[in-house]
Design a protein around this nucleic acid. Structure first.
Lengths: 123, 123
DNA sequence: AGATTATATAAGTACATACTAATATCATTT
DNA sequence: AAATGATATTAGTATGTACTTATATAATCT
């Protein structure tokens, strides 16, 4: 007997994704994991504000958190019970591929990313 | 040049649907139009509360309102710019077909519905 | 016209949300 | 061990939300 999703379950996910910042965070994570400082720079928002949004996403297990040294990387949790709903929603959002490419090309992307990438290559 | 949907557009729809009552209202409307008094009875909520939820849905043009005599009937607006997103979400919700059948069979469904149905048959 | 029924609106309230500013925690570097 | 950098948490505040109670509007019926 599979547990049926309730209206409350769906409404909770929608409430979580109904903030434009959190929604775009997930759209970015759909492409690649990000660390907190990258989000801070991308959204031009304060670090506590970003951390608080990420905490909500993490508490709901929509994203997964992984510490690597000083940095904490976030990624989509593809095993979330509502992953199908979440993907359907994200597919209705503007693709962030071009935005990420522009960001990379701009040279504004924070150094932690390249550090980590360089670090992982060394292993 | 088609106007691209923004994160704010999507987030607004999600916020609107992130209330469990409004979400279930739309799931009911996916099956059949309903008038206010039917919602009041179905949800066992106060009439002002129901009307306020319906006003939000109407203000966002997610539902269409049509007065028939004393009654005001609400139906899904299938021309809403985000109709695909809305349908994707509703498809993740529990089907209300059985709930409506149970409700009809219970004899609790308010009389305005049958009156209107009888009236429409006369035409 | 007056009474009744259906619906909408307004005002008030309790609670939730998204931010800021300040501080704490944790890992790394010197 | 102290300094630095990244992230988390806390407290405070302004705004938003979903309800209640009371009232207004609109259509129908007598």
């Amino acid at each position: 007997m599979t547990n049926q999703t309730t209206f409350i379950d769906v409404a909770s996910v929608l409430k979580l994704l109904s903030d434009k910042t959190r929604l775009q965070m997930l759209a970015l994570l759909q492409i690649d994991e990000c660390c907190v400082c990258e989000f801070v720079e991308f959204f031009q928002m304060s670090q506590p504000s970003i951390s608080q949004h990420l905490r909500k996403l993490r508490d709901a297990r929509v994203v997964h958190e992984e510490r690597r040294g000083q940095w904490v990387y976030y990624s989509l949790n593809l095993s979330h019970p509502q992953v199908e709903l979440i993907n359907n929603i994200l597919n209705q959002c503007p693709s962030q591929i071009a935005a990420i490419e522009t960001w990379n090309a701009s040279g504004n992307r924070v150094k932690c990313a390249t550090n980590i990438l360089a670090g992982s290559k060394e292993k």
